[in-house]
Design a protein around this nucleic acid. Structure first.
Lengths: 213, 213
DNA sequence: ACTAGTTTAGAGTATACGCTCTATTTTTTT
DNA sequence: AAAAAAATAGAGCGTATACTCTAAACTAGT
């Protein structure tokens, strides 16, 4: 790792913290430089402007996210309750670490077309992952058979939930804690419950506190 | 309506348009004044700053929203599929008219505690409305009996969906059209489907293109 | 050790932002 | 019609912002 790379990642790290605390609007490049103890000139040597920093943070988030997803779902493969919930919690961890990003998501992609393109691509990938997880679940007899159209709706339902749960908590005046994250997980289970197969229903029942219909 | 009130509402109207187009960050009080053809001094005579304008817009949105909700649900009462979907569409209309607000929601409430208090109160009211609609649906035999805890989860599931659907479309690179709004509606139906009573299932089946489980 | 390339410092600049202040016009009250 | 109050104009000001530029320091290859 070269010196430049080290400085670059220190800038990103500091920027993430400041953005999370105060929002991208309130944080200027000069603030980031000052918080890091480097000069504005130095910062501008590495990043042409604030937008570029934000884009770099997004790319980082996406890359790490995809690789963590693979780690969780590769060994056992997707398509069981455990890996789905683990994935959901992983996403929430990301949403927390990069919370400024989801918080300002719509505004950010509006004002930066380049970022928008990046995000839309990632968004589609995520949808594909959910879709794949559902299909695998059906194949493994964890879910029942579901008509294609309904499967599509379920995919979006689940992804929207994963994408905005933290946001929902924040704007509703709730803190992000173990408990509130668990509630999100519960809602996710509730969404999937109607689609569980007979056998899955039986095995899930005796485990966690899922409520029956 | 006094002259001041007229000017005030013209300011709000112009602000909404500009905010929707360019985002609150890019729009300054001077821009609003210029777009309206009044002086900055005049604008500041009516509103102390941009935050106050945003708060006023929110209050307007909330008040009109509540009264429209009453109009839809008062005559027949909540608790049937038609009024629920009509309410959902109404909310989406609001989300569109004030789209800058939902777009920047989390960031706005973060940087303005006063606005946050207003929003949280409204948020709770909305949740209560959904809760009430569900209870009424059960009472009228449209929904089956549902345990309290599950009812709570369903409430949040529905409200989160209504709150963020437009946002979801926007960040996903989809335009807001009749078709995409209808898709949101479909997802809403999918969420409620598992909870319909036998009789409701029968009557719903033959109507719209709802997919059976 | 020399040198070319890379990285950093920090002063500096043009611009725009949010906002104020006073003077003037318009409206309302008596 | 005169006086008081409300509404508006517009110049202007302090500050912060995003960003640049040059010179200095450091690093790496030979």
């Amino acid at each position: 790792m070269s010196k430049a790379d080290r400085t670059k990642s220190r800038i990103l790290e500091t920027a993430i913290e400041l953005f999370n605390d105060r929002g991208t609007k309130a944080v200027t490049t000069n603030h980031i430089a000052a918080a890091l103890g480097i000069s504005p000139g130095n910062l501008y040597y590495h990043f042409r402007n604030k937008e570029e920093i934000i884009r770099a943070i997004f790319v980082q988030m996406h890359e790490v996210g995809v690789s963590e997803y693979r780690e969780i779902n590769d060994p056992r493969g997707p398509g069981n309750a455990a890996s789905m919930e683990e994935t959901f919690l992983m996403i929430q961890r990301f949403n927390w670490r990069y919370r400024f990003f989801k918080r300002e998501l719509a505004a950010l992609v509006q004002s930066d077309p380049e970022l928008k393109a990046l995000f839309v691509a990632s968004h589609r990938e995520h949808l594909a992952m959910v879709r794949q997880a559902i299909d695998a679940s059906i194949e493994q007899g964890f879910f029942r058979e579901i008509p294609l159209h309904l499967r599509e709706l379920l995919t979006e339902q689940i992804w929207l939930m994963a994408l905005f749960w933290l946001n929902y908590l924040e704007v509703g005046g709730e803190e992000v804690t173990e408990a509130t994250l668990a509630r999100g997980n519960e809602i996710l289970r509730t969404m999937m419950l109607p689609y569980l197969s007979e056998s899955a229903l039986r095995s899930v029942m005796q485990g966690s506190g899922v409520h029956t219909l």
